[in-house]
Design a protein around this nucleic acid. Structure first.
Length: 256
DNA sequence: ATGGCTTAGGTGCTAAGA
């Protein structure tokens, strides 16, 4: 079974990219983030023609998440319980024996921003939800754009990023809280990557891609039973070099 | 090299991203 995550930065702009990628990479489940469209505009028919079911939770202009899948999703959840939020950032569904939770975690903007406080509160609510899901399901994958860099070596320039937004100790603690629920960062199950293969995002600005000024912020976090069956976890960095790319690339986990 | 892009909404610019 293959499960992937991709922050598209607009599904409307990137629909052709998704269809082309799925044709070459017929994963079982693809979690999407930043679809940036309301549910009435979701391209259900085009994806169905490509052999994929869709469930989604979107809004105008910002955020928006979806799960595309070969088999239809069961027991779909589209919000964090007990967390009032107008922003569409979470969607969960079951596929066979596997529970997939797709997330577009808040960016935080800056350490002194109200958005940073919102980010940390959102992660607390996410951890509560994940704990509950882990009591109900043995095979759980929490995946998406976390907007947190796990370690200094997951940035192209630790001197520039360490301590700042995406790399601050409270954000790292929020990620660690999720791992402490019993989740494993699938990326870390395999050898360190070289060059572009170390990252999942490159800034549009300042030649981020040609300079390989990247970050690893898109993750697959697996429960013990699922992590034990993980045989690969790779970023499809070639997508970043295509015409009119998203700033994030797909990250694919293979589970036996 | 915190931007020098890219997106949506709306039609000239702002907000937001990471």
């Amino acid at each position: 079974m293959q499960i992937a995550s991709w922050n598209l930065n607009s599904l409307n702009v990137r629909l052709d990219h998704v269809l082309a990628w799925l044709e070459k990479n017929p994963v079982d489940v693809l979690a999407l983030q930043e679809t940036k469209l309301t549910d009435d505009r979701f391209p259900v028919a085009a994806l169905a023609e490509a052999g994929y079911h869709s469930v989604f939770s979107g809004q105008k202009t910002y955020n928006g998440v979806a799960l595309l899948s070969r088999a239809p999703a069961r027991d779909v959840v589209t919000a964090l319980p007990a967390f009032e939020d107008e922003q569409k950032r979470l969607i969960a569904g079951s596929f066979g024996k596997t529970r997939v939770i797709g997330v577009y975690c808040p960016n935080g903007a800056a350490l002194d921003s109200p958005k940073y406080a919102y980010k940390l509160a959102w992660f607390e609510a996410l951890a509560e939800f994940v704990r509950a899901e882990l009591t109900r399901h043995e095979r759980v994958l929490l995946t998406g754009d976390f907007n947190i860099v796990p370690r200094p070596e997951d940035t192209h320039d630790p001197d520039k990023w360490e301590g700042g937004i995406l790399c601050s100790p409270p954000e790292r603690a929020a990620l660690q809280t999720l791992l402490d629920c019993g989740l494993t960062d699938c990326w870390r199950l395999f050898a360190e990557r070289e060059g572009r293969h170390r990252y999942t995002w490159w800034d549009y600005r300042g030649g981020g891609w040609p300079r390989n000024a990247g970050l690893r912020i898109d993750h697959l976090l697996a429960s013990p039973a699922l992590a034990a069956s993980c045989s690969a976890c790779e970023a499809h960095v070639g997508e970043r070099g295509r015409k009119r790319p998203s700033d994030h690339v797909p990250v694919v986990g293979t589970f036996t």
